[in-house]
């Protein structure tokens, strides 16, 4: 079981309120991702849940029981750190077994669990090495191994992939998702990378300056962002946000159109523009277009076969039903 509830949680460092007031329910077995720009308080929130930081005020319940004043070890949560935080003077086997040794588990059961974790994570070949002799990806696996042997109520991940190179990151992302399918244990995952959030989460929590901007499934956030911040943060490339005359036409302070929701033509359309940069990804091409009708360059997605290069003139027409409208406070209308 791993249901986690935060009630009116606040956290201040010195006089600085990092988390002003936050309520959140995390259901058992969910894969929840905290996402937001750097410095918005994601790690702090995770560390409050872990018990590594004390809350300034508020309550945290784990499986319905008050855990506010429990020390980290008694919360039955396992954490995977961005730096891996392996014990450098111990072998991989001892690293993984460490939490079980602390729990004074009997030898036979301990060995069974360590072997099992090593098998799941493909660590069997390195089990007697020291962390210093492993690659980044292998270290990450050891850190995950150390977490899973405990069979915790929930896993906490703090940007676990940000020290890996891009190719490895995609691989590990899949592995962690598979691990979740297999264990069906609650996972809370912190990242500043919205692609990771979109691809892995059951539920995304978008944070800004310690406040929750929106909670929802990846597709909910994509299709119904609650405000301009979420609209701009979720989705890649970013949504085109326009204010002024274009917005007033639609009775809004700001309107947004995603790059994939604009029809492109070389002959006619609503807005005329000149292609500044064309990024060819093969399947798609992203165009950055300068248009006299707009202050900011627009981003448009074209089919990979669409023949275009820098300097070409194109016409763009937003799909009316995919348009997002926001009021003068940045909140979504309708």
């Amino acid at each position: 079981m791993g249901k986690i509830q935060l009630k009116s949680v606040t956290k201040a460092f010195g006089g600085v309120k990092v988390i002003p007031n936050l309520d959140l329910d995390i259901e058992d077995g969910e894969f929840v991702v905290f996402v937001g720009p750097s410095g918005c308080g994601k790690s702090t929130l995770l560390r409050l849940i872990a018990g590594l930081e004390d809350m300034t005020s508020g309550t945290i319940l784990i499986d319905g029981k008050d855990a506010t004043n429990l020390p980290p070890a008694q919360r039955r949560l396992a954490m995977v750190f961005q730096s891996y935080a392996l014990y450098p003077h111990m072998s991989v086997r001892k690293n993984i077994a460490f939490p079980l040794m602390m729990a004074k588990m009997d030898k036979a059961e301990m060995n069974r669990r360590v072997e099992n974790a090593a098998k799941i994570l493909n660590l069997a070949d390195y089990i007697d090495r020291r962390p210093g002799q492993l690659s980044g990806g292998q270290r990450q696996r050891v850190a995950i191994g150390r977490a899973i042997v405990r069979e915790p109520a929930a896993f906490l991940f703090d940007e676990p992939l940000s020290n890996l190179d891009a190719a490895l990151r995609v691989g590990m992302r899949l592995e962690i998702s598979e691990l979740h399918q297999r264990l069906k244990t609650t996972m809370i995952y912190v990242t500043h990378d919205q692609v990771e959030a979109m691809t892995m989460a059951d539920k995304i929590v978008v944070l800004r300056a310690g406040n929750i901007e929106q909670v929802g499934s990846p597709l909910e956030l994509y299709s119904r962002p609650r405000n301009t911040f979420v609209a701009g943060f979720i989705g890649s490339p970013k949504m085109n946000l326009m204010s002024g005359a274009h917005a007033r036409q639609h009775d809004a302070a700001t309107v947004g159109v995603r790059p994939e929701h604009m029809d492109l033509s070389t002959s006619d359309g609503l807005w005329r523009g000149e292609v500044k940069v064309a990024e060819h990804l093969g399947s798609d091409t992203f165009l950055h277009v300068d248009s006299k009708d707009h202050e900011e360059p627009l981003t448009v997605r074209a089919n990979g076969e669409f023949q275009v290069k820098a300097g070409d003139v194109v016409y763009m027409t937003p799909q009316a039903d995919k348009m997002h409208r926001f009021d003068d406070k940045g909140l979504a209308i309708g």
């Binding site: 590594l52 954490m79 750190f81 935080a85 450098p88 460490f98 939490p99 602390m102």
Partner: peptide
Amino acid sequence: IPVDILEAARMDGATLRQ
């Protein structure tokens, strides 16, 4: 010595002495 490592030990159930 990275604080993370000490915190990891704390999460893993080590007492202050351990």
